[in-house]
Design a binder for these strands. Structure first.
Lengths: 133, 133
DNA sequence: TATTTACCTATTGACATAGTAGGCAAAAGG
DNA sequence: CCTTTTGCCTACTATGTCAATAGGTAAATA
């Protein structure tokens, strides 16, 4: 399951895309609009800054801002950053060569096929695809 | 993420499909072939019996058996039984009408599309599709 | 009656999730 | 310079889930 971290991160990105006028947007505003605890969002945006999705600025007039244009962000990269992995099974999350049963495993090909489908889905969607009304 | 419950359940089903000669297959044999703790498998097959995927028989000559032909089981129904839900986000797992933000949510349509894709994938695969070498 | 099997309840350690609490640091305005 | 606004940092916590383990009872067969 996608956790709140991933889902909230996406909503923060969309909020920033929608209110992008070149200025920094305070987290307080985002938290209020999205009805998410500001304290919790702090943890999330911190990861997003560390991952290079956002820049932050302290002080009056500070806040957060996108570093690229909305259409240049894929949902996949956002989710993968927040969730750690997009893989749906442990066998594939830590590299495909770890399981000693992998050669005879009847289910591994299906998991691989599934993983590819999931990645294709999320990496082909951009922020703009979601924001578009 | 798909848990061991779902993944092991699938492997048990495949093991039973492969060794189906009309007789009951003892869990001990399955556990040894699949290299999974028999004690843990007991919990899993119990759920599968409760869910109507298998029948069990006690005593000598007992064990477990499929109730249908392998091609009549979909991967989807097996996973959904074991995981509780196939939904990838909480918003959709407990019915789509719970979230108060659902009308204005920019991300909900994507989650719905994703959920449909996942269900289509798993419900269109049968045990036979996996067993086929 | 002994053996083999399923079936039942309870418990556990480790970890992740979804936050909360309380402060320090930086930047800008007056 | 001081106050306000903002981000940034460390720590803590309650709750729940996961992945098992432990130890028994019941049923069926030979």
């Amino acid at each position: 399951m996608i956790t709140t971290k991933g889902r909230y991160a996406l909503r923060v990105m969309l909020d920033l895309a929608e209110h992008a006028d070149g200025n920094f947007v305070p987290l307080k505003d985002i938290a209020e609009r999205q009805e998410i605890s500001k304290k919790y969002l702090e943890i999330i945006v911190k990861d997003m800054v560390a991952g290079g999705l956002l820049v932050g600025a302290s002080g009056k007039g500070g806040g957060y801002k996108l570093v690229r244009k909305p259409e240049e962000y894929t949902v996949g990269e956002i989710l993968e950053l927040m969730e750690g992995t997009l893989s749906s099974v442990a066998c594939l999350a830590e590299g495909t060569n770890t399981c000693p049963r992998r050669k005879s495993c009847r289910t591994l090909p299906m998991w691989e096929e599934y993983d590819k489908m999931v990645r294709d889905f999320f990496y082909s969607k951009t922020l703009c695809d979601l924001a578009a009304k």
